[in-house]
Amino acid sequence: MTRFNELLKHAVLLFGALIVIVPFYQMVSYSLKSPAEIERGIGGFAGSQALMTDEQCVGRNTPDRSDVETARTRFPGQDDSHVLGQLLEEVRAECQVRPAVFNYTSAFSEAPLLCYLLNGVIVTLSIFVIQVVVALPAAYALSKLRFWGREAVFGMVLFCLLIPVHAIALPIYVGLAKLGLINTYAALVVPWTISVFGIFLMRQFFMTVPDDLVDAARMDGMGELAIVWRVMLPTAVPALMAFAIFSVVAHWNDYFWPRMVVTGDRSLFTPPLGLREFKADIDGSLYGPMMATATVIVTPLIAAFLLAQRKFIEGITLSGMK
């Protein structure tokens, strides 16, 4: 009976797991297959990897007049159209690629995916660093210093905790537009520099740090700022790690905000924007490269998650701790 129960539970959970994982399977699978295989729904997971012709490569290398002139010596006694045909055959032969290679190379060549990835890294990292630089001293003051107005400041933190930044995106957008900051890195970063949740979290963490530690540092002659960076920061590393994961995951995956403030300027695109642009551009035959792009964008976080699951789950569910 208990055995049967256990089996039943596994059956239910496996069914759920299947539905959860199918899109990931599909994404990677499509990123490996040729357009024909995608079109006809054949080829299993990885496709047959039979050579296919890269039409864009052919398009780029189509022989022109001068090519025909220089090649004429190789095909003596043939008229131009024949030479052209021969050359085209050669080009087509050279443009044979494996579908997987084709998909991933086009992901990077059709759009500046590398640049998008780099933007993603720059934006997420700057957001996290600024959040910490702003939040840590405030959290320290709120937890370890007694000052007039502390309750009011903390009350403000609690109130601001209620406001989702997404909700007030429009007025922030208007403000940035007035400052002429639309289509700049600043626009991508500035609205997220203040993490009220980060302040709250760090304050809760610092409350558990004994006051004696701070007093000992003062006895050693440290100033308040030195205490924040040289005493409190090291003690807060575990909490900061979790917060880092929370923040990085949120902003790497964010699509809404970049969509709001970056219009058209591809050099500022973050990975999700790049993928969206790719989707808007495709003519129907480029599902493979699009899925390759999606795979490239999704992989870094998924890989990190699989390597350090516990930390990630801790970080993402952090907001559950308040």
Binding site: L13, G16, A17, V20, I21, P23, F24, Q26, M27, V249, W252, N253, Y255, P271, P272, L275, R276, K279, M290, M291, A294, I297, V298, L301, I302, F305, L306, Q309, F312, I313, I316
Partner: peptide
Amino acid sequence: YKTIYFLPVMATLLAMAIV
């Protein structure tokens, strides 16, 4: 199971929507 069920939370929603 925990790992599998958590995967969609980690993945870029936009990409998964396209998938």
